[in-house]
């Protein structure tokens, strides 16, 4: 049984049929990437999974066998499906520390929260240095670290990452992708990674899906896709 199993996902924005029946699954411990050009529906897919968008009756999104489409976004976080949104969306008027505390909002065990905080601050030492600063004053890269760190404070089983490389300098993209791999390897966190930077995404992922205007057009082994002529022509810009 897949840890995240999406069947027949449709999303409508008014009259716009943004997702036209997507099937996608992520096995426990995998890194799966969803690539596609701007406007393909990647963000919409993640927002539907995390409960920020409503879906029709015949759509099914299940996590470890239980249905997510019937519960609210805040209940989905508590189940361990945690979404790092596009554009980071840190709370700019709160301090770095308060942002991290917000990540642990649903959690009860304060000792485990403290352990996770130590882990996050070790993973991203820059956050440790800027703990008392307002998040709005951080650079783009630091905000991305904070957004991921905040999600880790929610104790995720599945992490949904929406374009973590967006707007970052290449060296920072490396750092962020390294930490994503590390989270997957050392903490066993399952990852669904949405990217326009297909090159980077396919390198870290086990499997990949290609999304075009609301439909999955290709899926399979990530490394194989790196050498697929169609993928190279459309997404690797070589």
């Amino acid at each position: 049984m897949a840890t995240l199993d999406i069947k027949n996902l449709h999303v409508y924005y008014g009259h716009i049929h943004a997702l036209k029946g997507i099937d996608l699954h992520v096995e426990e411990g995998e890194i799966v990437t969803l690539i596609g050009s701007n406007g393909a529906g990647k963000t919409t897919t993640l927002r539907a999974i995390s409960g920020l968008l409503r879906t029709p009756e015949d759509t099914s999104i299940s996590h470890d066998g239980s249905e997510l489409t019937q519960i609210r976004a805040d209940q989905i976080v508590a189940r361990g499906v945690v979404h790092v949104p596009e554009g980071r969306r840190v709370f700019s008027r709160m301090s770095v520390q308060e942002n991290l505390t917000m990540g642990a909002y649903t959690r009860k065990n304060q000792q485990m929260v403290k352990d996770d905080l130590d882990y996050v601050l070790k993973l991203f030492p820059r956050l440790q240095e800027r703990r008392a600063q307002k998040a709005g004053t951080l650079s783009g890269g630091e905000q991305q670290m904070l957004a991921i760190g905040r999600a880790l404070m929610s104790s995720p089983k599945v992490l949904l990452l929406d374009e973590p490389s967006m707007g970052l300098a290449p060296v920072l993209v490396e750092t962020i992708f390294d930490s994503i791999e590390q989270l997957n390897r050392t903490r066993g966190i399952t990852i669904l990674l949405v990217e326009q930077n297909a090159q980077m995404a396919l390198q870290v992922a086990n499997r990949a899906y290609v999304l075009e205007t609301g439909r999955i057009t290709m899926s399979g082994d990530a490394k194989a896709m790196l050498s697929d002529p169609k993928v190279i022509a459309a997404y690797l810009g070589l």
Binding site: D74, V77, V82
Partner: peptide, 24 residues
Amino acid sequence: TKVGRAIRSVAEDKDAAALMGVNV
């Protein structure tokens, strides 16, 4: 307090607050 942080998070960004587990 935690309640106060929830209020401030919803004031700043409702979707992001929901993704933290806040009942908006």
